[in-house]
Nucleic acid binder design. Sequence first.
DNA 1: CAGTATCCACAGGGATACTG
DNA 2: CAGTATCCCTGTGGATACTG
Lengths: 102, 102
Amino acid sequence: MLRFVDLVSGKWAIPILYRLIVSGGPIRFSELQRAVAPITQKELTRHLRAFERKGLVERTVHAEVPVRVEYRVTGLGLTLEQPLAALADWADAHSARLGGGH
Amino acid sequence: MLRFVDLVSGKWAIPILYRLIVSGGPIRFSELQRAVAPITQKELTRHLRAFERKGLVERTVHAEVPVRVEYRVTGLGLTLEQPLAALADWADAHSARLGGGH
DNA sequence: CAGTATCCACAGGGATACTG
DNA sequence: CAGTATCCCTGTGGATACTG
């Protein structure tokens, strides 16, 4: 198996991506930050930039005041839906038991 | 989605786990290290200890000379097979395209 | 063989302040 | 609002040497 971690890495990468995928449509920066709380602005920005570079996420800036920036997954990003959903289901089912292991 | 990364974290976590899962039976430390090369002893040990604490992996020491230590996934660890396989498939299919984005 | 013990480098990540 | 810019700390991870 190749290093999946090299493709989607970082503490918040999976939560962000999964949130973007399940949200369906475009989602604003602030809305995304609330959804993936307690992530910091810096980290959210960093991850989103990385996703953009990899073609997983698209960024749209609306020239309004105040500025509105929206993010949405690309077709490529959507192909992660099944794998991430499987992971999410697993985490939901076993997180209680695994949490004690620190 | 909960923090999957908190449950299975680290550069080598997924490669190690996936290797243990697909190998089916017990696998020795050195064998595992070769399979997940170029991981260092230290990192392999660290991850294996973490998996043990979480009940994902079992460790068996055979009192021989030289010592033989074998690892195998538990039933709980095996439940990760489908999610990780999905991830592996995805990585195989898209790693070429995503590699350029660094 | 299968570790443990050190030392060390660096990226990830948090907190805070500032800006177009 | 959606960032950028700093400062700083911690964990991750590599290299190397040593041991039951």
